[in-house]
Design a protein around this nucleic acid. Structure first.
Lengths: 341, 341
DNA sequence: TTGAAAGCGCTACCAT
DNA sequence: ATGGTAGCGCTTTCAA
């Protein structure tokens, strides 16, 4: 049982190794020239003493911590938690640490971004909310790179990484058309994310461009997001003009809810309609749903995000980039593979 | 468009307000005596200049950052992401920031804990893995409080906050007995968490203590955790001796998978058996599952966790505590309320 | 290659 | 109540 000891500093290591503090710093950070044997000696000393760099002091000096700020919202939503998991994993793999902040409102985002700068983070990842230009400007002034996921605003010096919503919509449209669907519906919620809106627009466009005669397209707008929103939308759906037979959903949660809502009214997919959702969440693979979905490549998204961060750390003034990550169609029960049928 | 400006320091505020740096520090931290009007003057100056404390410098000085380290694993698991959401929310509400680290193995935990100390975190929350005594000792030496959730080891100076597994098992047993179940089963996975094991033990004990004759109890051990594990266990279940009619699950994911697995074999709850799971995850409320579960009071858990942290920061040498948080039974379709039946 | 020394921005102690 | 000042532990010139 050791006493509450004073923590070991670089000076202790220096004394132990018989060198100066400066040499210790160089030995441990590969920065500045140092004789190989001196370096080995210092590293041995550091190990012997159990020396740990004080990140606070290091960051204060370097004017940059090895922290990366991550802005999230509604973590318990399945897709978001998968994305967060991927981000944290990637952040750690690249030698950083994740400073995770949950925001409820745009106003939260403001103070959050401010706190990030106060910690001199090496980068900021925004997965929710729209960074107010003024605040981003503040980050830019601190030379802190900012990157957004699955959203895109035209903010100077801010990069964005997005799943390919166009391609997703095209894949879904093709699948529904090939399956012989005639009347279509698009399901989204009010207060949709930017990505959701894009998907809807792309769906309408792809459908309009389809070779054969124009198809009917109904827009279903749920009052709220998530499973509950989708379920309520299904329960409230006006069936007097029949049920569309090809339905595309802005996200998987809405889709699962919609499916369950329709089941409560005696309809089911693929018997009565085809259903495709975005976001291949674990739940969509389960026996009770087996939802055909568009898979977002989370590892690729995360990897690109960190590439952006690191690249902009090197050259802060490069033009803002928009990186698009391909999606893929996962065929399951709610709109089966016609080639297997 | 402002230039990459030098950041504003306490000295700038001091100059602007016509006072010394020390006064600025006092004005902003309520620490040390200061004339009300001076304080107001400083605060006005700080606001005018847009001054932001440098947390790195502050932490270096105070020997403590306002960071709280959170150790998690498999974030995308529904209960875990809900818990993480609660933790982050609570951490922020109390004026800290969450440093979130994902661990895969015990070895990860070691380096993680070390990194936390390097950031001089104000506390460590362990939601996964078992903190190795030696490392915890290191934290203790830095006077960093450590608290674990839903696990309990007898480590000096480490507090634990747990949902009441005993009570949960008792509630489940009572419900199953009152519903007239005769043969029972306990479903868990190999490599279960500490909490899962506790629940199983408590279930067996409660059942054994039940007033009427001893009941049959079968243990089903899935090869893996989660939905897939539960489903596989159901598909592999030996039906030659019939299906138990009262089944209790270590967690909701296993339960959902088991239910779906049984459905694939033509059985369903509550028709053929009653099913109760732990963890009231959002998914269990959905129409396709409507699982009777034991609800963990996440806000209460999180609140207690931070209470422990703050309390131990005040008096580091107090005895280790184990705080138990009540659970509640949420009656749904897979084991309905008999009083409504 | 190495060491001395000047900060990084802040807090806290000690005089005043 | 206020101001001067000595660090916190580290990095990074600049000389030697």
């Amino acid at each position: 049982m050791s006493k509450p000891h004073k923590s070991i500093t670089a000076q202790d290591v220096a004394d132990y190794a018989g060198v100066s503090r400066a040499v210790v710093s160089r030995a441990l950070s590969d920065n500045g020239s140092i004789a190989p044997e001196t370096k080995a000696k210092v590293i041995a000393a550091a190990r012997a003493l159990g020396y740990q760099v004080n990140f606070l002091a290091q960051g204060l000096n370097r004017k940059r911590s090895q922290l990366i700020g991550v802005v999230v919202a509604r973590i318990k939503d399945p897709f978001r938690s998968s994305l967060l998991e991927g981000l944290i994993h990637t952040i750690q793999r690249r030698g950083y640490q994740a400073l995770v902040t949950e925001v409820g409102s745009e106003k939260d985002l403001e103070s959050t971004l401010r706190q990030f700068t106060q910690f001199r983070v090496s980068g900021v990842i925004v997965t929710s909310g729209q960074p107010p230009a003024a605040l981003v400007d503040e980050c830019v002034q601190f030379k802190i790179p900012v990157v957004g996921i699955n959203r895109h605003l035209d903010i100077p010096a801010v990069d964005f990484v997005c799943s390919d919503n166009q391609q997703g919509a095209a894949l879904a449209t093709a699948q529904l058309l090939e399956s012989g669907c005639h009347s279509f519906a698009w399901l989204n919620c009010q207060s949709s994310t930017w990505a959701g809106i894009q998907r809807g627009v792309a769906f309408e466009q792809t459908l309009a461009r389809a070779r054969h005669a124009p198809k009917s397209l109904k827009r279903i707008i749920a009052d709220q997001d998530g499973y509950d929103g989708g379920e309520a939308a299904a329960l409230a759906f006006d069936l007097s003009q029949g049920l569309p037979d090809g339905i595309f959903c802005a996200n998987a949660q809405l889709a699962c809810g919609f499916l369950d809502g329709m089941r409560q009214r005696g309809f089911d997919a693929p018997k009565d309609f085809h259903l495709i959702g975005f976001d291949n969440t674990p739940q969509t693979a389960q026996y009770s749903y087996r939802l055909t979905t568009l898979n977002q490549d989370i590892p690729a998204l995360c990897s690109e995000v960190l590439n952006c961060l690191e690249s902009r750390n090197k050259s802060p003034n490069q033009a803002a980039r928009l990186i698009t990550v391909p999606v893929s169609l996962v065929l399951r029960h709610t709109s089966p593979d016609i080639h297997l049928g």
